[in-house]
Amino acid sequence: MAHDHAAQPDADQEFNPVDPHGHHERIHHHVYSWQFLTVVLFILLFFTFLTIVVSDAESWLVKSIAITIPDYVNALIAMFIATIKATFVLLFFMGLRRGNPMNGMIFLFTLFAFAMFLGFTALDLLNRGHVYEYKAHSIVAGGTGVGITLPSGASFQGPITASAREREIERLMAEGSPDHPGPLSREGAEHIWELHFHEGHEEHHATLSTANQHIRRTGLTPGLFIPAEHGDVSHAADPEHADPEHAEPANDQPAANPH
């Protein structure tokens, strides 16, 4: 077949008005100058910087001026900046700006499918119980721990986090902490756990890098937690955890099944 084309290089264009192969578009490869690509890179780096600054600025604003910013603003701004960055990458680095428009179409269809997926799944899982009360509680808060067995044979009676806390308290009772050598009473161990929990566990591990500490930002977005107390969210979010009397808090938050 190749020799046919060699003999008549433009044969198909002559006899074929409906050219399905895009032959009319011989040059696809647009070459960007290195200056242009560098500018794009710096724009991307600037937006990366910006999104970190904005995230911190919001916390700072909340703390210093004590204004109330709705909890979704934070996510919206971050996603907006990420979308701008992604658009730059798509248009210039990935060549959608000058390339085959069909590729852009493919990407748009992908986003359509993604939107359907996310949208309808959220529509269901976040909108339970508008008509039937029992449908509202399909997810048990914290989990029951029922039915989970690890290869080690360990099983759970409540949330995973409660078991982790329980193990730590038992360890503290046996070994103690650097400041309070063990063995300790249960109350003592729980007290040390409390101290660590509030001061931040990480201060007792000076060897850890900052990446692995619990970064205490100045403020969480108010409204995210119902009793919006700065730095005290742990209590607000899960009072049972601070209370040693309730070692298995999950049982207090069951799915309220009317049956």
């Binding site: 799944t121 399909s138 721990g145 029922v146």
Partner: peptide, 12 residues
Amino acid sequence: PGMGGDPVLYQH
């Protein structure tokens, strides 16, 4: 659901 997950999410 033992860990707060949702089996219906799997169905979605």
